[in-house]
Nucleic acid binder design. Structure first.
Lengths: 489, 489
DNA sequence: GGGTATTTGTCCGTATGTATG
DNA sequence: TCATACATACGGACAAATACC
């Protein structure tokens, strides 16, 4: 039971980090490394305060923090004493089973708002990536987080008083704003009762799968397509039939032949190929749905972000919502950590929903829903989208010119005019897989398009998906140069 | 094109509501009622400021708000002009199909954190309820929302700088805190890799359903039981077999006979009957799982809230997690608008998860995850739970004594010692349904236990579920008196 | 009809009370 | 206890549009 009359601590007076935080973190570190034996007495508040030349209160709060977290114990009029921290019974030894699986997970998905990660602790297994063309979430420099914080604060203060029930369908204020937004930006028409708010597209698709009547069993899915949507249908034991995609979008003959009753499409900017579905094809698709009593799930994941001209209005609007379920998200417009999406059901699915909405809970945070509702009502979303469009247009331009410079006609570009990614087809003797590998060695991350197919492709020319949402403008040219180098045999 | 030189506005100087807000709301109201014709010019900033005796900027910000929301248009150096607001093209006329379904939804579910609601606009269809024994979310008076706001603010500020990727599994800080919490409060043991964060129990169950191997097809579900959990399994096309519940919990013989490989139980406080599963039954249940290679889903929805003595440690802990998936939630501990829950997978399911975690996105808000992590790490959750326990114990006591007074032995009480609800069996000639109806006429809302059965019950004595989480302590006695009166023939 | 005075929206810094650390 | 940050309210200065003579 020894005493500890001084500790090797230092504090920086003018650091951004508060004084108490500095003291706290350093002490905590000391405990975690096990330098201090259990039961040992810490220097008194007065002594440490004098040593560090700070107020006694500062030290006191640091100690209080440590007490709250169970590192030390404060005995009144006696002192603060270290507790044993090495004993952490809630940590069980690994049995290897899990470890084997963790880390398999190296497929960087371009449409994950959530990038997959190596294990929390050691990122050493991954080579450091400087030029990341796989982050397709959103350009964070555009978003004014301080502004957003004010909206959240307003919502929190209002909610302090009357924190009423949570609506399964979503907060009325947000539903109102979304209805308007969907009409103005995408020509979608609906009643408020058709709109459902959810925490991300996957939550909404789960709900949709539950609402679709049992005799619908087959989903025709774009090949290649958005894997995270496909996964949910598969999880709900729908039969997935891959349907090819050409320059005008999904192959209608194949869809018709497939006997599917449901299809999931991204007409304004097909993912990942980038083709836009022309009006004629759209009409055919809607005719298919009408004939077959089918359901079209329209995932307009980045249509708001068209650089050049306004995209065609949504399928939902053309059909007036009879057979189309429209899905949209805010994660790609504000910031990925915001998990709010919406779904516009068909009238008949909406009726089913309201018949049993008491069985389903809302998944999105109420506070963030209210904050977003005000943010939209006051036109901030519009500003944000306009800013994003400009930034993305610029980035796409830089990308294009650099690609043309580097490959001199040996790379074709697809789907440049919308959104935050484009696709290149390269004239190279190497396989796409090999190129990705070599790029990674050069500190460049890209995704091969094969990644989004269910079956292995008859390997024609290597095709790569380049997302430019996350990468800084300045890094693009060098990134492309390195990528081009990686393609040379 | 007339002018409007003065408006009938009034402002209160020393109100809590900011001046600019007062002006804004009043003007907005005027527009919505259509008092002001479109194109009409509003009083100039200076004039209105003089009239109201406030600063010009105060008026200006109110005007700016109205501009942002599209009610008025500001022409530079010329004035502010009213815009037409009646034209709202995004509102389509109803075709009656949906309306019919909305409003069916009158079943008030006791375990919804989200209460079902009448249509947003008209709540006239429902009789006004003063004594609500169906709200089982959480006692909101206990929660210090201002404190929570501070934690959210901290998280927002930290996130401003490095708003990195969203982890599908959940934020590491929160997972750390949850691991510790689950061990300390419920004796659950696990690795961090086994913990998954999600927005509500349903999101997590969706994921669980997706992870369970295909040859598991049958779920033995407590009858009566938690409908919102059952619904998710049903949505994923599992076969649901209802298994009876006795005073010791789920009927093991029936479970064994049912051929189910999965079961979903609430051992510490069965919902809704309230029985606690004794150690012997627990051991048998675990033996069943080991024998059958089964999966037990343990939904400990309110075990932290035991009033009397500490509840038995969780099944997960007894089994060391080999066959048990543990599920817990924070919605019932803090406030229902917070949608954060967690799930502790078995090692083998965790391995499956990490093999394809890139296919699933996180559903819970990152900001709220970080806020909660700090809230827990600094011991606030512990304080909150202790407060809740006290409050609920008191309420349960009042409830019990009033019931005994009113019915004089003609009502039996079950499951009083834990959580936020109890169950009474009444000696009355009326059916449960009839009692509920008559209670509603007396402004009392209760749920019959039949509500939680899948099949109609052979009607023995009427049983009612009384949730006391939401109702104010002072209202309980009168509520019970009215309920007792409703039971008399 | 052209110059001037006034009115108007807009931008700026500043003061104050409150919450927070 | 003190420093800081924030929301709110205020008045001055400017330039452009408008009204007036």
């Amino acid at each position: 039971m020894n005493n500890l009359n001084s500790l090797a601590l230092t504090v920086e007076r003018h650091s951004r980090e508060p004084l108490t935080m500095q003291i706290y973190t350093q002490l905590r570190q000391t405990f975690l490394t096990g330098t201090i034996p259990s039961g040992c007495r810490l220097p008194s508040v007065r002594r440490l305060a004098a040593q560090l030349e700070v107020s006694r209160n500062t030290v006191e709060t640091a100690y209080a923090q440590l007490v709250a977290e169970g590192y030390v114990e404060g005995r009144e009029k006696s002192g603060y004493f270290a507790l044993a921290v090495t004993h952490q019974p809630w940590v069980v030894p690994a049995d290897g089973k899990i470890d084997a699986a963790v880390g398999q997970n190296d497929a960087r998905s371009a449409t994950d708002s959530s990038k997959t990660l190596p294990r929390s602790s050691d990122s050493a297994t991954f080579p450091q990536i400087e030029y990341d063309f796989t982050d397709s979430s959103v350009d964070l420099t555009v978003m004014d987080m301080a502004l957003w914080r004010r909206y959240v604060n307003r919502a929190l203060k209002e909610a302090e008083r009357f924190s009423g029930p949570v609506r399964p369908q979503g907060e009325p204020e947000l539903i109102e704003a979304v209805t308007r937004h969907a009409f103005e930006s995408r020509g979608a028409v609906c009643l408020k009762e058709q709109v459902i708010i959810g925490a991300g597209i996957q939550s909404l698709l789960h709900l949709l799968c539950a609402l679709i009547p049992d005799h619908y069993t087959r989903v025709g899915f774009e090949e290649p397509g958005f894997r995270q949507a496909r996964q949910i249908f598969a999880d709900h034991r729908f039969l997935i039939t891959p349907i090819g995609v050409d320059s005008q979008g999904i192959d209608l003959e194949a869809l018709t032949a497939s006997q599917a009753e449901i299809t999931c499409v991204s007409p304004s900017h097909q993912f990942p190929l980038g083709s836009a579905m022309p009006v004629a094809r759209r009409a055919q698709l809607l005719a298919w749905a009408a004939r077959r009593r089918g359901i079209i799930v329209e995932d307009d994941y980045d249509s708001e972000l068209s650089h050049v001209n306004r995209p065609l209005p949504s399928l939902q609007g053309m059909d007036r919502g009879e057979h189309v379920v429209y899905i949209g998200s805010f994660s790609k417009l504000l910031f990925p950590a915001l998990r709010i999406s919406y779904m516009i059901l068909t009238p008949s699915l909406a009726a089913t929903y309201h018949g049993r909405s008491h069985l389903y809970n809302q998944t999105a945070s109420k506070i963030e829903q209210l904050a977003l509702a005000n943010y939209m009502r006051e036109g901030q979303l519009g500003k944000q989208v306009r800013k994003l469009r400009k930034v993305y247009a610029r980035k796409a331009d830089i990308l294009q010119t650099t690609i043309q410079q580097e490959w001199r006609g040996k790379a074709k570009i697809f789907g440049k005019s919308t959104g935050s990614h484009l696709l290149i087809e390269i004239d190279s003797p190497l396989s796409a897989e090999r190129i990705v590998q070599r790029a990674e060695e050069n500190s460049v991350a890209v995704l091969p398009v094969e990644h989004f197919y269910t079956k292995n492709q008859a390997d024609n020319r290597p095709r790569l998906l380049l997302s430019f949402a996350g990468i800084t403008e300045a890094l693009i040219p060098e990134g492309i140069r390195r990528l081009a180098k990686s393609c040379n045999a």
